[in-house]
């Protein structure tokens, strides 16, 4: 059985591609054969974040139009042999994707014994975003603790529950999870940022994990290494926790509370 995960948000710049790369790597490192697909035709970036941009020969649109086989287009990750990347096309029109084409690729991946397929959605609610979520079993809704992002996530939840394959065919609904990214407990404490509880109140979503605002995310993308490979970093550990939780391990939430430094201990805030 293949499980299809969509990483979505509505709003751009909240961390979808960072999350897709980290989650796909994390699941694959646990021994599951995994593919991660970039649906952002025209603005592909997953290849850069995964560090395979110089190995892209064929892309998803080539596969859909029969210009290459799926095997030719899939790029095997250099860090983890259970992980494969299917890049988006950089030159084609964003309408080059079709529902039948995407459906066929997912079926072929299932036939090749892929256990997980991570679909990295583009921002917005147009065709690429629609096709990224259409076949999903699970949705990771990536949200920043910020008004525009929370609103767009709510909009996306509405679309997941009405426009997906599962909704159209009256199947069990997509399982929706909240991933709160770029979180800063310090700013939450002084009332400058929505808290985890605030966002959960509004979206009523199951929290899969909190990713703290972290310098390591930029460092990781600079070097084309999914941040989860940086095991010492807080963001890397947060993604590792999320992968473990998703796969059924019981991991207490971290990174929601402030790390108390010497200053905090001295003044004992709270």
């Amino acid at each position: 059985m293949t499980r299809i995960i969509v990483v979505t948000s509505g709003k751009g710049g909240v961390g979808k591609t960072t999350t897709s790369a980290a989650i796909a790597m994390g699941v694959a490192q646990k021994g599951h054969k995994t593919a991660v697909i970039d649906f952002d035709v025209g603005l592909r970036n997953l290849d850069l974040i995964m560090g395979c941009e110089r190995r892209v020969v064929y892309d998803i649109v080539n596969v859909i139009y029969g210009e290459a086989t799926l095997n030719q287009a899939l790029i095997r990750d250099k860090h983890c042999e259970q992980l494969y990347i299917l890049p988006a096309s950089q030159t084609r029109d964003k309408d080059a994707l079709s529902q039948e084409g995407v459906g066929q690729i997912l079926e072929e991946l299932a036939a090749k014994d892929f256990e997980y397929v991570v679909c990295d959605s583009p921002a917005g609610i147009e065709k690429g975003a629609h096709l990224a979520m259409y076949f999903a079993d699970d949705a990771f809704v990536v949200t920043n603790p910020e008004v525009a992002s929370v609103r767009d996530s709510d909009r996306m939840l509405g679309i997941l529950s009405s426009k997906s394959r599962r909704a159209e065919q009256g199947l069990e609904p997509i399982k929706e999870y909240l991933l709160l990214t770029r979180y800063s407990p310090e700013r939450v404490r002084i009332g400058e940022m929505l808290s985890v509880a605030d966002v959960q109140d509004i979206l009523s979503l199951h929290l899969l994990g909190v990713i703290p605002e972290s310098k390591s995310v930029l460092t990781a993308s600079n070097s084309g290494m999914p941040v989860i490979l940086d095991e010492k970093s807080d963001a890397g550990q947060a993604y590792a926790d999320i992968v473990a939780r998703y796969l059924g391990e019981d991991k207490p939430h971290r990174f929601i509370e402030e790390k108390k430094g010497l200053f905090g201990k001295f003044f004992g805030s709270k």
């Binding site: 929370v150 002084i190 009332g191 400058e192 808290s195 605030d198 509004i202």
Partner: peptide, 10 residues
């Protein structure tokens, strides 16, 4: 706080 204003608006 601005966060509580944000929550109410949302």
């Amino acid at each position: 706080s601005s966060a509580s204003v944000a929550k109410e608006r949302l």
